[in-house]
Design a protein around this nucleic acid. Structure first.
Length: 811
DNA sequence: GAACTTGCTGAATTG
DNA sequence: CAGCAAGTTC
C-alpha cells in the first residue's frame, strides 16, 4: 500500500514537466472519446452521489480510472483530494497503474490515494488512534485471523472451558460476526438468552479477548474498521480533517461492503457528498463476511439525490457466455436487474463434460488445456472451483501433463509457518509486549522452553498482572523455583529479543529480517534438519529477505510498513497475471478475466455448497457466485461435474448442480463419451418429459438399457430432471426453484454385493412405500430386517426407515 | 524436554 | 484423508 503509493508519486513526478493547453485539450477529448455513452456519463458526472451499476466486463475499472483522471485534468481537483477504495491490494495496484498511464505526461504535485479499506484504516489509525484516548498507541500491532484465533484459544483455556465443546475457530468467528454487526463484548453479553450456556461462555471469552487485545496494543482485522469508525464518530476535528482531505471518494465493488464500511464511507463523505460507488449486485458474494447487499440495493435511499448509471455493454465475453450467465442469475430475486449485451460474436457453445470421478475431471481438463495451448500458445486458462480442497487433483493432473500452473489461495506465502514465525520476531522487535507473537516463537526454534515452562509463564503473567515479556524479565531476575537450565534458556531468549529491538531502532528493515532469521537460531535449526522440506523453508525465508530489501528501497517507516503489508496481503494479491494456467476459488477470481475458463465440481452440495442450500438467501448468493464464475470467461467456457468424489476419505456419489439445470441446454455442447446427465435432459426435453414422468411412476423407459451403475441410472437422473421441468415450466418460470435436499450419497461399495444377497433394498435400488410412493435407497446400515435405510422419496425428501417396520416392497 | 505414535475429529468462501 | 492434540517413550 504505502510503498506502492510512494512508487506512484515518484513515478508521477518523474514524468515530463510541461503540457501545452492544446495537448491537454486533445488529451481530454481522447480520454472521453474512447468511452461509450454511459461510461462517459459516469466519468463526467463528478458532483454529488453517484451509483454506477456496472455489469460484469462492462469496463468498470476503466471508468474509475478515467473518472479520476478527468477530475484531475478537467475539474482541476488536486490529486490528494481524491480517494479511491478497493478490496484487494491487487485491485488497488491495478487502478493506480491505469490512472498513472492516463496521466502520464502531466506534472502533478501529489498522487490520488488508491487504497484498500484495511490499509486506509491502518493509515488513519497510525496517525490518529491516540485521539481515541483508549490506551492504544500509534505503534499498535495488527492481528490476522491466525493470531486472533490463538488469542481466543488462550482465552478459552484460561477461563477453564472445555475446548472440545467450545472450539476456538467457531468462537473466533462468532466474535468476528458480532463485532462486524456493531456489537461489543458488553452488548453481546447483554444479548445472550438466559439459558444459552454456549453463548454465555462465548460472551465471556469475547470480553477477555478484547481485554487482551487492548493490553497487547493490538487490533484485529475487524478492529481496524471498528476503531476507525469510532474515532471519526468521536472526534469531530479528526473527522473534519479527513472530510476536507478526501473531497471526492470512489468505492469499488460496492456490493461487497459491510455495515462498518458503509459507516466509514458515510463519515468520510459527510460534508462533500461527492461519493461515487461502483458495483454489481449480481456479484455480491461476501455475505459470510458481513457484506450487505442492501447497501447497493438501497443506495438511492441512503443518498437521496443520487444519480444512477447502468453500464450494460459487455466487452469481455461472447454472447453465448453472457446468455448462459444471464439465464442462471435471472432466477434471483434480490437484484436491480440489468440487461448485459455485447457487440462480440456469439462464439462457440459452452462445453459440458461429465466425469466419472474427480480424477477423471482433472485429467479431462489437463487434456483440454493442452489442446487449447496447441492451438494458441499464449492462451491463459483458469480452473475455478468452489472450495480450496478441490485444488489438489488438478495440481497433480497438471503436473503430470507438465503444464505450468499457478495456484492462488490455500497456503499463501505469508501464511507459511516459517514466515509467520519470522514475522512474529519482527513484531516483537517493534513491540516485545505482543504476547501472541511472543508465545508463538518463544520456543521455535526449540531452545529448551517446553510446555512446563510455558505454563509457568502463563501462570505468573496472570498473577503479576504484567505482559509476558515483563514476566520473563521478572523470572530471570528472581529465578525462584526455576531450574538453572530454564533460567539460562529464558535469558537466552531475552537476549535475542533485546537484540532485535535495538536493531529495529537503528537498522533498515532488511537487516532486522536477516537478524530475525540468523540470530534467533532459526536458520541453523532448519539447516541441521537437512531435509527437502527444511530446504524449501529456507528458500521461503530468503524470499522474505528479498521482499524486505525491496521495502528498504522505499524508505519511510520501513519495518512497520513491511509487517503491516505482511498482515494485509491477500490471496489474490499473489495472482500473476500472465501465468498460463491459474487454479483458484471462484471467490478469488472475482474481478479477473481469462480467455479460457473451466468451472469444475458443478455438483449438488458442492456448488451450490451444502451449507447454503437451506437458506434461500444463501442459495441466491451461490447463484451469484456461479454467475461470477461464468462471466470470467472471454471466449471458451467449460462446465464439468463428477459422478463421485471422495469426501472425508469416503467415496460419495454426487448429482449435477442445479445451476447446470439453469443453463440453456441448446447452448451446451456435450463432450462426455456416452450417456450423460445432459444427453438425458435433452432427450427428455424433446420427448416432452414423457420419460421423466414414466420414471416417476416406476414404469420402464426406453433409456434404461443405458443404465450402468444403479445410482446413475436413468431413474435417478429422471428424478433430478423432474426439478428441471418444474423450473422451466412457463407458469413457474418466475418463481424460485424449490431447493433440493442435499444429496451426497454413499456410492456403491464393495460390500454392496454381499448386501444384495440378504435383502432387496440395497443402495441404488428402488422401493415403494405405502405413503411416500417410489423412492431411491441411498444408504443401508446394519443387516437383516432390522437394517436402517435412508431413502429419498421425490417430493418428500430423505427418510430414515427401519426395514422391518417400513412396509417396503421392491419397485 | 523433545521426538515419535496413535487416535480422533472435522472442510466454505476471505481481508 | 488430512491435520492436530494428547499420550508414550527416550
Amino acid at each position: 500500500m504505502t510503498s506502492d503509493e510512494i512508487k506512484a508519486i515518484s513515478c508521477l513526478s518523474l514524468v515530463t514537466r510541461h503540457l501545452s493547453l492544446i495537448t491537454r485539450h486533445s488529451f481530454i477529448m481522447d480520454l472521453l472519446s474512447s468511452l461509450n455513452e454511459q461510461q462517459r456519463e459516469a466519468v463526467t458526472a463528478t458532483e454529488g452521489p453517484l451509483l454506477i451499476l456496472a455489469g460484469a466486463g462492462s469496463g468498470k475499472t476503466r471508468v474509475i480510472a478515467h473518472r479520476i483522471a478527468y477530475l484531475i485534468m478537467e475539474r482541476a481537483v488536486a490529486p490528494a483530494n481524491i480517494l479511491a477504495v478497493t478490496f484487494t491490494n491487487k485491485a488497488a495496484a491495478e487502478m493506480r497503474e491505469r490512472v498513472e498511464k492516463l496521466l502520464s505526461g502531466s506534472r502533478l504535485q501529489s498522487a490520488p490515494l488508491v487504497s484498500t479499506f484495511h490499509s486506509l484504516c491502518v493509515r488513519i489509525l497510525r496517525r490518529d488512534i491516540e485521539a481515541l484516548q483508549e490506551g492504544y498507541t500509534r505503534s499498535f500491532t495488527i492481528y490476522d485471523q491466525d493470531d486472533s484465533t490463538r488469542l481466543v484459544k488462550a482465552a478459552i483455556r484460561d477461563l477453564g472451558y472445555d475446548d472440545q465443546r467450545l472450539g476456538p475457530r467457531p468462537v473466533q468467528s462468532a466474535i468476528s460476526r458480532a463485532k462486524n454487526s456493531g456489537l461489543d463484548a458488553e452488548s453481546y453479553a447483554g444479548s445472550v438468552e438466559a439459558h444459552d450456556e454456549k453463548r454465555a461462555a462465548t460472551a465471556r471469552v469475547f470480553r477477555l479477548y478484547e481485554e487482551r487485545l487492548r493490553n497487547n496494543n493490538a487490533l484485529d482485522f475487524d478492529d481496524l474498521l471498528i476503531q476507525t469508525v469510532r474515532l471519526l464518530r468521536k472526534d469531530a476535528q479528526v473527522r473534519e480533517r479527513y472530510n476536507d482531505r478526501f473531497r471526492y471518494v470512489l468505492i469499488d465493488e460496492y456490493q461487497d461492503t459491510n455495515s462498518l464500511q458503509f459507516a466509514l464511507i458515510r463519515l468520510l463523505t459527510e460534508r462533500q457528498q461527492n461519493i461515487c460507488v461502483v458495483g454489481d449486485e449480481d456479484q455480491s458474494v461476501y455475505r459470510f463476511r458481513g457484506a450487505d447487499i442492501t447497501n447497493i440495493l438501497h443506495f438511492e435511499e441512503h443518498y437521496s439525490n443520487a444519480k444512477v448509471i447502468r453500464l450494460e455493454q459487455n466487452y469481455r465475453s461472447t454472447q453465448n457466455i453472457l446468455d448462459v450467465a444471464g439465464s442462471v442469475v435471472r432466477r434471483n430475486t434480490e437484484r436491480k436487474g440489468k440487461r448485459l449485451w455485447t457487440a462480440n460474436d456469439s462464439g462457440e457453445r459452452i462445453r459440458y463434460y461429465q466425469a466419472p470421478d474427480a480424477e477423471g475431471e482433472a485429467r479431462f481438463i489437463a487434456a483440454k488445456i493442452e489442446e487449447h495451448r496447441r492451438a494458441d500458445q499464449t492462451i491463459r486458462a483458469a480452473v475455478l472451483y468452489r472450495t480450496n480442497a478441490q485444488s489438489r487433483v488438478f495440481e497433480e493432473a497438471l503436473r503430470r501433463s507438465g503444464l505450468p500452473y499457478n495456484i492462488v489461495g490455500g497456503f499463501s506465502f505469508y501464511e507459511r509457518a516459517e514466515v509467520r514465525d519470522v514475522v512474529s520476531y519482527l513484531k516483537l522487535a517493534l513491540n516485545p509486549h505482543d504476547s501472541v507473537a511472543l508465545m508463538r516463537v518463544i520456543n521455535s526454534p526449540a531452545r529448551g522452553l517446553g510446555k512446563q515452562t510455558l505454563e509457568e509463564i502463563e501462570r505468573r503473567t496472570r498473577d503479576y498482572g504484567v505482559s509476558h515479556w515483563e514476566c520473563i524479565g521478572l523470572m530471570v531476575e528472581q529465578g525462584d523455583n526455576l531450574s538453572p537450565r530454564t533460567v539460562t534458556a529464558l535469558k537466552n531468549f531475552q537476549r535475542i529479543i533485546t537484540g532485535l529491538v535495538s536493531l529495529a531502532g537503528r537498522e533498515p528493515a532488511s537487516e532486522v529480517v536477516k537478524a530475525a532469521i540468523l540470530d534467533t537460531g532459526y536458520s541453523t535449526a532448519l539447516r541441521t534438519e537437512n531435509s527437502d522440506e527444511a530446504e524449501a523453508r529456507l528458500e521461503n525465508l530468503q524470499e522474505l529477505v528479498n521482499a524486505a530489501v525491496d521495502y528498504d528501497a522505499q524508505e519511510e517507516e520501513g519495518l512497520r510498513d513491511f509487517i503491516d503489508a505482511a498482515a494485509l496481503t491477500s490471496d489474490v494479491d499473489q495472482y500473476k497475471r500472465d501465468a498460463p494456467v491459474t487454479l483458484m476459488t471462484v471467490h478469488s477470481a472475482k474481478g479477473l478475466e481469462f480467455p479460457l475458463v473451466f468451472i469444475v465440481g458443478l455438483e449438488d452440495g458442492l456448488f451450490p455448497h451444502s451449507r447454503a442450500t437451506a437458506d434461500p438467501k444463501e442459495l441466491e448468493e451461490e447463484r451469484r457466485l456461479c454467475y461470477v464464475a461464468i462471466t470470467r470467461a472471454e471466449r471458451f467456457l467449460y462446465v464439468t461435474h463428477a459422478m463421485k468424489r471422495r469426501v472425508y476419505g469416503e467415496e460419495l456419489a454426487s448429482e449435477p448442480s442445479q445451476f447446470l439445470n439453469e443453463m440453456p441446454l441448446e447452448l451446451m455442447e456435450d463432450l462426455t463419451r456416452g450417456v450423460s446427465w445432459l444427453s438425458f435432459a435433452r432427450g427428455s426435453a424433446s420427448l416432452e418429459n414423457r420419460h421423466a414422468v414414466q420414471a416417476l411412476r416406476g414404469e420402464t423407459t426406453g433409456e434404461q438399457r443405458f443404465a450402468g451403475k444403479t445410482y446413475d441410472s436413468v431413474e435417478s437422473i429422471a428424478e433430478f430432471f423432474r426439478h428441471r421441468t418444474n423450473q422451466v415450466n412457463p407458469s413457474s418460470a418466475s418463481s424460485l426453484p424449490s431447493p433440493k435436499p442435499t444429496t451426497k450419497r454413499r456410492a456403491e461399495s464393495a460390500d454392496t454385493a454381499s448386501a444384495a444377497a440378504n435383502g432387496d433394498f440395497t443402495p441404488g435400488s428402488h422401493v415403494r412405500h405405502p405413503k411416500y410412493g417410489r423412492g431411491l435407497v441411498l444408504r443401508r446400515e446394519g443387516t437383516g430386517d432390522s437394517a436402517k435405510l435412508t431413502v429419498s422419496f421425490p417430493g418428500f425428501g430423505q427418510k430414515k426407515l427401519i426395514e422391518k417396520y417400513a412396509g417396503l416392497e421392491k419397485a
